[in-house]
Amino acid sequence: MQIVTRQVEGKPLTVTIEYPEYTDPVERLIQRIESLDVSFCAVSDDRQIRIAASDVYYLESVDRKLFLYTEHDVYRLDLSSSALEKLTDGSGFVRISRTCIMNTAHLTGIRQLKNSHLEASLDNGEHLIVSRKYLRDIKKCF
């Protein structure tokens, strides 16, 4: 399989799959790419906004309310935890604590602090506390 990537400015992300014949591996590949194209319907100032999963940094549950964090903004998400698990399953999201699900696409590193807490650094400069229990799940994403 050949992988060709190129930067085309001013165009949305486009994936073109060329195949000699439509086989099971091709179908699986398409399904896998489709699973990456997940988006969330979030609420901000009583307006509904669709946010692509790739723009989401992490999701956090606070007082039974779910919040979605992008690079700079925070949105409210009306979603049940089971629906959230289903939506984030296999799309690079991983639970890092009881209340937080992180997008591993924005993860730049994990380090152990002096007090032996684990800290995940994101590419927007934010840091999240990782529960040791979920470290293995993060490992599985790579």
């Binding site: 190129r6 085309v8 994990i110 380090r111 152990q112 684990l118 040791r132 470290l135 293995r136 790579f142």
Partner: peptide, 29 residues
């Protein structure tokens, strides 16, 4: 924990360096 952290960081670095390589070879066809 130490081993898992090293594994994750290595893979992130690998991903980042391969991303950089892709960018260099990104001559629009």
């Amino acid at each position: 924990v130490r081993r898992d952290i090293r594994y994750i960081n290595e893979h992130i670095n690998k991903k980042e360096s391969s991303g950089k390589l892709t960018k260099i070879s990104d001559n629009p066809e």
